[in-house]
Design a protein around this nucleic acid. Structure first.
Lengths: 222, 222
DNA sequence: CGGGTCGTAGTACCCCGGTACCACCCGCCG
DNA sequence: CGGCGGGTGGTACCGGGGTACTACGACCCG
């Protein structure tokens, strides 16, 4: 059961969300708040899985409330929901630690899918916003050379072996790798063995360390 | 009617996509390609609304094909679809001009929603990837404590256990830890077991990952 | 005093990971 | 044509890792 705290200054809007969420199995609205201050308090008190947060509100707005809720370190994740797709809102919300940003004109199933994704630890962005975000991202991310160059051991790996190394870096077991890549476990063992030999690791643990030290693995809280 | 070009080196995979897309009203598969070169040619010839593009292919890969298709300036939009969520793939695909990036383990309705969104000029990112992308974005865009601090699981560890976790993060075996700390291997096993339980790791590999993600382990030359 | 936490240590058991070795298919190239 | 590298697959073996459970001394605190 996914517990949700609905934050919006308009009672009618809150009512709509409650009706929608309570009508589907698996989600439950455990509380409501009409402004930021109340949202922070209730989030700490109710510890919901997801906080559905409006941006524009009298008093403390949704961005500041998001920042405070995230800062508490609780497991509540904030899904920001607004009618305005202003870039400033999006950037501010994401910097504040929001796990998602959707528009209020989203279809009900999109909202539900978003809530489920956020509750699962993933993140969501409204498609209309994703486009602009990606354009900015592509602009911000430097071309190529991310400093991982130089180690000849990386070059010695084949494409497949590099993929296997990344999988090892994710902490996957041989059987998990086999499942994801649609291979037999024997094949995975063969690949893993070659990777270990090529990078000079005695076991997969040191391969994980190698992957992190060379930028092949990225933080992935779960 | 949304027209789709399916690009994948595996015939069975293409068949699956065709069955799925042709089974729903509003989308139609107008062509298939088995590798990048064919994809570029058919995209120019068929001018589909959406190109469903696999990354890993013999010959020209999906990234390069995406770049060329986008470069033609046609109205075709590319939705990259892969089994592997390598960050390098994502970055490369987005820089190449892809309008979306989904994983092959996506549910059918997610894929269909993605195709519709891309055809409409929006963009989509798999929720599991969005999370990492947002984190990078928040890092690239100025300011902001990235909220990685304050994991309650770290506080739950005793001093000794934290030392053990650091040792695990270095890649040491139980016997090495025992030697360095002057303990019996049994004691080390007990500590390791408690560390794993407290941080929620199923084995020491995930403990290594946890250590890196929480700054307990640092890149070590050599 | 009793109770809690922490660090230490042990035994028993099972499974996964790693190694060694072999085998087949494919595409590429001399 | 033959050779070769890369990817895939198999068998057999064994040692380390992880779990479950128990135990005891040191220490602190009410």
């Amino acid at each position: 059961m996914t517990t949700v705290l609905v934050v919006d200054d308009q009672p009618l809007q809150r009512y709509g969300f409650r009706m929608l969420l309570d009508s589907v199995p698996g989600t439950e609205v455990v509380g409501e708040a009409a402004h930021g201050t109340e949202a922070v308090r209730k989030a700490a008190e109710l510890r919901p899985d997801v906080v559905l947060m409006d941006v524009r509100m009298p008093g403390m707005d949704g961005i500041e409330a998001t920042r405070r809720i995230v800062a508490t370190g609780g497991r509540s994740r904030v899904l920001v929901l607004t009618t305005f797709d202003l870039d400033e809102y999006v950037h501010a919300a994401l910097r504040a630690g929001a796990s998602g940003f959707l528009l209020k004109d989203a279809r009900p199933e999109e909202l539900l899918a978003g809530i489920r994704a956020v509750a699962a630890g993933d993140a969501v962005i409204a498609p209309a916003l994703t486009r602009r975000l990606l354009r900015e991202f592509a602009r911000l991310v430097p071309v190529g050379g991310d400093g991982s160059e130089g180690d000849p051991r990386l070059g010695a790996l084949t494409d497949r072996e590099r993929e296997i190394l990344v999988a090892i870096g994710r902490g996957w077991t041989n059987s998990e790798i086999a499942a994801r890549f649609v291979l037999s476990e024997s094949t995975v063992k063969t690949h893993v063995g070659r990777v270990l030999a090529k990078i000079g690791a005695r076991d997969r643990i040191q391969a994980v360390i190698f992957a992190y030290d060379h930028g092949l693995a990225r933080p992935q809280a779960g």
